[in-house]
Design a protein around this nucleic acid. Structure first.
Lengths: 203, 203
DNA sequence: GTCTATATTGTGATAGAC
DNA sequence: GTCTATCACAATATAGAC
């Protein structure tokens, strides 16, 4: 694992990320992270002082990835259909590359909401921008009347849920076939886009 | 907590359920469960032998609740609109009463998929029934062409996601206001129903 | 910076009295 | 059935040599 040239801190962070994302804070062991990084436990503490501080570093990075950076997409001058298509496409692609992200973030935030909420605040997420941009579309008469917050939750939920529930869905619907499920995810990009577009078009 | 008349096993199970659902298996402590049940640790082992066996009892019950018992609803002779409305209404109401259920199930299954999948198998969930019933609607020309599996995932995801992501949504969109968020959930029943109906109606 | 050895506390589980 | 006391080991963290 200790791939030659990289500095130790990076190597540790990579190992920690894998373990934390798969097992969560409570289920992770410093020993396992050390093993995966090819070093010993003491070094972990030398670089990060405590398990919690190490976790915080990982969580911060993971959360930033998890929250869709949707402001740019939505504030561009593309058509609404294109915007939504781009959002869904981008988000599902990213999640395919980091499939553990959803349950990790969801579970950890649920464990320590007050504590981790500070981390959130620093990112300056502004849902108002997105909400306004949706409201504009409604006023223009481009889409039907809908609570923008409901729409946002729908869009994000439709993208995230299959990843958070993958072990269940794959086993119950796809008889635990990886390839089948991957096909399902690929098809899902268009499927979700269509689903959203249809649901907000005028009656 | 030890409310007089109930037998000890029930009392333990209730305490265990609260702790496990909030903190997960890895984050839960036998001591905390004992405290909440108003007894001592030794009794937990007297009744359940191990933490794992106790957890299994809780998980089994929780999972049964989590999987929507949708077969009855979908195989009735109500209109499709009514079926979907009933499904969404029932499911969101149940989740409102057990808000920790989604992340708990999602996280635990992700931790030990192989192990917990056996528990699933015993429930004899048959998605084929639901899939067929959707396909019938498509053939009738009642709804547009859509992969039934995608539609099922959409329906369930739209219901579950706000609960799994509640701590984030509530803080980012609702400035951590409980009442606002509850209103949002209440409105969501109609909102999700409309969203689905619109998205599958014929072009 | 990196290691070995060790301190210290936490935690699941059992023994045995009542 | 329920309790107290205790075991055995796991896990975070630190001390100190190199």
């Amino acid at each position: 694992m200790a791939t030659a040239d990289k500095n130790t801190e990076k190597i540790i962070l990579e190992a920690a990320k894998i373990v934390f994302l798969e097992k969560g804070f409570d289920g992770s062991r410093m020993q396992e992270i050390a093993d995966k990084a090819g070093i010993n436990k003491a070094l972990l503490h030398y670089y990060f002082r405590s398990k919690e501080k190490m976790f915080d570093a990982i969580f911060q990075e993971a959360f930033q990835q998890f929250i869709p950076h949707v402001a740019e997409i939505m504030s561009s001058d593309k058509s609404l259909l294109k915007k939504i298509e781009l959002f869904v496409e981008t988000y599902i692609t990213m999640l395919s590359e980091h499939p553990h992200l959803p349950i990790f973030i969801l579970h950890e935030i649920n464990r320590r909401p007050e504590q981790l909420v500070n981390t959130i605040k620093n990112f300056g997420i502004q849902p108002e921008l997105l909400i306004e941009s949706i409201q504009k579309e409604i006023k223009k008469g481009a889409i039907r009347k809908i609570d923008p917050r409901q729409l946002i939750v729908n869009m994000i939920g439709l993208c995230i849920f299959p990843f958070a529930a993958r072990p269940i869905i794959q086993r119950i619907i796809f008889e635990n076939d990886d390839i089948q499920f991957d096909k399902f995810l690929k098809a899902r990009k268009k499927e979700v886009t269509d689903f959203i577009i249809n649901s907000i078009r005028l009656p």
